[in-house]
Write a protein that binds this DNA or RNA. Structure first.
Lengths: 221, 221
DNA sequence: TCCGGTTGGCAATCACGTTCTCGTTTTTCG
DNA sequence: CGAAAAACGAGAACGTGATTGCCAACCGGA
């Protein structure tokens, strides 16, 4: 009987899990359509100021459905941000792996991160999304949902910390507090580009390379 | 006759100018009341999310009048921002004047600027406004009205550049491009604090002092 | 006193996000 | 298969704010 019950539980669980996964995949498909539509709108309009209605129309789904899957516009934007960060992390990993010495890896990471944060500086690959509006909007997300942004950025912070640790271990650099150094570099790279908006002459703008050199010298030692 | 005409013109001009200055002073008084009310609301609510209606009620003026003096809410916020920057510049000037050596002046400027941008770090003086919401909102202003923000910040940029020039002249530091260095420092100080929002443990946050040291080392040489 | 510009009060409009309603369709499950 | 439950589509409805329009009262200057 115990066995029978166990079997039944197993069966039920499998069934439930099956239906759950079916439902989940359906849901994920719909969520993806909403997000694709939103990305398209952002690409076209160059801003995150699209309306929910536009997303509905574009994705050929219903308002009803939208609010079933997202708690509101902020959640959608957060989702887009998280998606973008995921892509960035993937790309960063590739770039870092292409370098061999710890200092080169750190440098490659820093510069590429800067490029992700200020996508205007480098020509966009064909088919890639226009990330500038999202980068811009991320500062507002940082104000309104710091925990969410922090969670999304965690892999980036973690990777940077590891690269610094590696560089320290290889005696390429010296730091008194790797964690703090990582925070400083991350903040400098991710946000200081923001001031470029205030400089209209492109030749005077601060480049990724310059930021990197600035950070490198800024390290203790 | 020519003289007579001239006299009359003069007279008319004086009259017009008189009435104009009267009107201007009246207008300035009303504008100031709007701004005072808005500052109060920001102080109380800790955010720039006040409504126009609240400003109207608080300042005991009319909606009609508000739109007569401001082209919209953005203009009001810009005005508040500009006002804050003016105060900051005044304060920065005082702080810098209290130091004697070029490097100390540069240091004092940098640290105080950081404190202005992240007002939470230091206890607010009695009677002073709560500038955090404005500091936060300034990033949105930077996105939406870069020229205006740039214009408002010009005195700060200018002062920083001069301080760097002075320090270079005194051989306290060496830079290859003072203008670019100024941009980097300004950006680092003004925006990198932003990342502190992502660190909940206050002891791990980046302080003004640390930012200064980071910048100092980041200088060429 | 009279006039034109200024002001106050307030209704109206508009834009958007969000919620609600109501049939219809699809999925689930015995 | 067939009924109950869940999901869905279409769109009206609501709430909040910003912004504008309109009209009568007001006020300083001739």
């Amino acid at each position: 009987m115990a066995e029978e019950q166990s079997e039944q539980l197993e069966w039920r669980e499998r069934a439930v899990s099956k239906s759950l996964t079916a439902a989940r995949s359906r849901a994920e498909k719909r969520v993806q359509r909403f997000m694709d539509a939103a990305f398209e709108l952002i690409d076209e309009k160059g801003t995150t100021d699209f309306t929910i209605q536009e997303v509905i129309d574009r994705s050929e789904q219903s308002l009803r459905g939208f609010y079933q899957y997202f708690d509101g516009k902020d959640e959608l934007l957060l989702a887009l941000f998280e998606e973008s960060v995921r892509e960035a992390v993937e790309d960063l990993r590739r770039v870092v792996d292409a370098e061999s010495t710890p200092i080169d890896r750190l440098r490659a990471f820093t510069i590429r991160l800067h490029e992700w944060c200020e996508p205007d500086g480098t020509p966009r690959k064909r088919g890639a999304h226009n990330r500038r509006p999202i980068s811009e909007f991320s500062v507002q997300l940082t104000v309104n949902h710091p925990e969410r942004v922090k969670a999304a950025m965690a892999p980036v912070s973690q990777a940077l910390l590891e690269l610094i640790d590696d560089a320290v271990a290889a005696k390429a650099i010296t730091v008194t507090d790797a964690r703090r150094t990582a925070a400083l570099i991350q903040q400098t790279v991710m946000y200081s580009w923001f001031g470029n908006r205030l400089i209209e002459n492109p030749r005077m703008r601060v480049t990724a390379e310059q930021t990197w050199e600035f950070c490198l010298r800024g390290l203790d030692g």
